[in-house]
Design a protein around this nucleic acid. Structure first.
Lengths: 208, 208
DNA sequence: AACAATTTATCACAGCCGTGATAGAAAGGG
DNA sequence: CCCTTTCTATCACGGCTGTGATAAATTGTT
């Protein structure tokens, strides 16, 4: 076998460069040349690892979605079974888990920033549409699951419509992420976390 | 006086064309040429009314923000003084007013679509930054005002932190608008309105 | 009719973009 | 050493972008 280069590692390097460009200058400025420069690679090299612009951008979005998804799954595994846990404990777990979707540190800020860019780009880019759809559905599935668990643990006020609450909490998360990323001077990290906690507390039984 | 052309009307026509392009193809594809074509004008004409791309895009965003802001103000004027109104009535007023910020019909859908595009573009476009900031602040001021009025009318559960609730409701609205515009197959108009109503109901006193 | 200002229409230029084609360089197996 | 495959690097092309410059048409006034 000729030349030894870890192909997958190279692809990851390129995608990471794309993320940096997207965070700094916006996704629409993440051209092949700009990404190649950022990765300190020749554009020819980039094109050797990716068939074209579409494959690169698709792979990048899939990478980011997987990265966040995997981290969420790892958090879930860490906690393990939470049957029998008290309402407040499940609620704290819920806050911690859903905080992964908020830009509360540099890593998450970068991730959410590019995800917002990808999501908006997907509206007019058929290449990203399917992935954006799956992401939206998966987020709702996760939130629904969390609310169901919370309900089982008695951490949910009676009389709440689970589907409505799923959409309410998901939209709240989306909106917090949206503003925290786009207008950090209007919505800072602390307030962001406070609002999420307040919402989940508010879903709990009256006298806690 | 030479040639009679309503200058402001022409500028509005161009901006409307830009909105159509932005809704259909995304803001980044709203080039001078594309907008001129959409307006059935020569690019030279467009450049006669706007100094350049930056002025056009700035004016367009300002126009859209003003348009929505004016409509909100008109709604407020229509209602007039609501001192002495009952909690449920004020709440219904609040839902109606805030619904202006959700894409519940074609007009609002178009408006919110371009506003989302403008907001995300503003992150990396200094020309739009100030306006995007003012918009975010103004939205929060409106929501805060509504919550305060609701509180005065006894339509708010006691013990709620008004600032937190302002950010919670605003983020909820942003998130609903975001998903309803980008992923209409995931969040339809009815659910969108339902969630807003559910949230405001939820803020009311326990037994209504 | 002549003039002047506005409006419309073109051309040209430099700068990006994605991509096809192609040539060298590098590296490991025979 | 040679050969094959992988990888890197460059060139060129057509297409799009905003913009400066300039010409031509239009229109109302004098």
């Amino acid at each position: 076998m000729p030349k030894q280069v870890d192909r997958e590692a190279r692809r990851r390097e390129v995608v990471d460069a794309l993320f940096r460009v997207a965070v700094r200058d916006g996704l629409q400025r993440a051209s092949l040349r700009a990404v190649a420069d950022e990765a300190q690679l020749n554009i020819g090299s980039v094109r050797h690892y990716f068939a074209g612009q579409e494959e690169l951008i698709r792979f990048a979005m899939r990478s980011m979605v997987d990265r966040v998804g995997d981290r969420l799954q790892r958090r879930i595994d860490e906690i393990g079974e939470l049957d029998g846990l008290s309402g407040p404990r499940v609620r704290r777990f819920a806050v911690e888990l859903l905080s992964e979707l908020l830009p509360l540190d540099d890593r998450r800020r970068a991730e959410v920033t590019v995800l917002v860019d990808f999501s908006t780009a997907a509206r007019t880019d058929p290449a990203l549409d399917g992935l954006a759809h799956e992401t939206a559905v998966a987020t709702r599935a996760l939130v629904r699951r969390i609310l169901t668990r919370l309900d089982s643990a008695g951490g949910l006020r009676p009389g709440l419509h689970i589907e409505t609450e799923t959409e309410r909490l998901t939209s709240l998360l989306d909106g917090l992420a949206f503003t925290a990323v786009l207008r950090p001077e209007v919505l800072d990290d602390r307030t962001c976390a406070t609002v999420l906690r307040a919402h989940l507390d508010d879903l709990g039984p009256a006298a806690d």
